[in-house]
Amino acid sequence: METTLAIVIGGLYAISFYLMLRRSMVKLILGLMLFSQAVNLLLFTAAGLTRGQPPIIPEGADALPVPFADPLPQALILTAIVISFGMIAFTLALTRRAHSSLETDDLDQLGRSERP
């Protein structure tokens, strides 16, 4: 399964890179969203996969039953998901604002325009 996921991650990276290199602002955002998914999956996979064993100590036991899924990357990814939500919201607002102020979708134009 790791192989499958590795290919999926590589594919997501490739598509997100391609999207980020576009001149359209919205495509850039789409690329960012895919990118954060890919990074999260990369973290998740690189830490090793364990089928169906959540890192939760069962009632009565005093340690995790082996094998358990690594809780640390999960904690990292959990925060990353929420952070990327904030980031996407911010870029959306930024794009929205830039579009309404500068009336262009072309990032190349954006670089050249001074404040209106």
């Binding site: 939500f85 904030g86 919201a89 959306l92 607002a93 929205r96």
Partner: peptide
């Protein structure tokens, strides 16, 4: 915080 932020974002965006 999380609830506040999510709601705040959605309200702001929706009212814009």
């Amino acid at each position: 915080v999380v609830a506040g932020i999510a709601v705040h974002l959605i309200f702001t965006m929706a009212e814009d």
